[in-house]
């Protein structure tokens, strides 16, 4: 059986192990949180290199793609270079191909509707999802400056997001990753309510679940959430706050859903096709992936 391991800079308390089926083949997947320790992540990647079929990076990106430009994130690149035999992926291949397809399907199913306001907690790491939401007629509110830098300035168009990304990303990626993204115990800190009104104003909350959880302070009545990497406790918490529909872009297995890096690692391990290969798009579409949708009262599960 193929084996993939996700090395996350996040908390080890979210570690897990499960079996996925991708392209008809079972894959053993596991997550190992490094609690924010880069040195430990490098050691573990080095130790697993050549012993597993693919490695995923969680809590850090190797690449950020903003419009037509792709920026290398030095920390992510350093981690990827620690393996010389095993492919290392960060989920950007899944974000580029699969997540826009999920948005299109949700729009076709009328779960997402033109005119709704979509708060994307961080859009620079999910530009294709932001583009798909805008193309579906939703009003974007991108929270990159709010949730990464605590600057109360919502970015309201894809064009401004791209412009700001081109100015800021080449420099910001050089900063220590802890300054931009919650890692280690930060992922379990009490929610920060300072941007509550943007959650209240949104019909749809989308993006990285660690950012969402870090700032999610109020009720979610009637809202749709589009995210990844949730545990059974996370789902219960969201439903208890009145969330109308939870969509995770990855399937639910053993009570949790997986990050994009895990899905991409599994797909690369089975297919041998990488995100930079021309066949990647067809490989993703053929993989039989499906989003996980939860709607309470009655809870409807589609996997």
């Amino acid at each position: 059986m193929k084996t993939v391991v996700s090395i996350s800079l996040g908390s080890s308390r979210r570690d897990h192990r499960a079996e996925l089926t991708v392209l008809g083949e079972p894959v053993q997947v596991s997550r190992r949180g490094m609690d924010g320790r880069l040195d430990r992540a490098l050691e573990v990647i080095h130790a697993l290199d050549g012993r597993v079929d693919a490695l995923g990076l969680g809590g850090v990106d190797r690449f950020l793609t903003v419009g037509a430009r792709r920026y290398t994130v030095p920390v992510g690149e350093q981690l990827a270079q620690a393996a010389t035999a095993t492919p290392v992926v960060d989920g950007s291949g899944i974000k580029a191909v699969w997540e826009p397809l999920v948005v299109e399907q949700l729009a076709a199913d009328r779960i997402l509707k033109p005119g709704q306001t979509a708060l994307m907690v961080s859009a620079l790491d999910r530009y294709p999802m932001a583009a798909a939401l805008e193309a579906a007629g939703l009003h974007l509110v991108c929270g990159d400056l709010m949730f990464s830098a605590r600057i109360d300035y919502p970015i309201r168009t894809l064009a401004e997001l791209a412009e700001l990304g081109q100015r800021l990303v080449p420099e910001m990626v050089k900063l220590p990753f802890q300054r931009l993204y919650p890692v280690g115990s930060e992922q379990e800190a009490e929610p920060d309510p300072r941007f509550l009104r943007h959650f209240q104003d949104a019909d749809v909350v989308a993006g990285d679940f660690h950012f969402i959880r870090r700032y999610l302070a109020g009720r979610l009545d009637g809202k749709v959430m589009l995210t990844t990497s949730t545990t059974a406790d996370d789902v219960e918490m969201l439903l208890a706050r009145g969330l109308a529909t939870l969509v995770t872009t990855s399937p639910r297995l053993m009570g949790r859903t997986y990050g994009t890096n895990v899905l991409e690692a599994a797909l690369v391990a089975v297919s041998g096709v990488r995100a930079e290969d021309p066949a990647w798009g067809d490989t993703v579409r053929a993989a039989g992936l499906s989003p996980f949708v939860v709607r309470p009262n009655p809870r409807e599960v589609r996997a």
């Binding site: 400056l145 830098a149 605590r150 600057i151 700001l164 100015r167 800021l168 420099e171 910001m172 900063l175 300054r179």
Partner: peptide, 14 residues
């Protein structure tokens, strides 16, 4: 404060 340091970076970049 870390947030103030980052904001000054962003101001200078913008």
């Amino acid at each position: 404060a870390q947030d103030d340091v980052m904001r000054l970076d962003i101001i200078a970049l913008l």
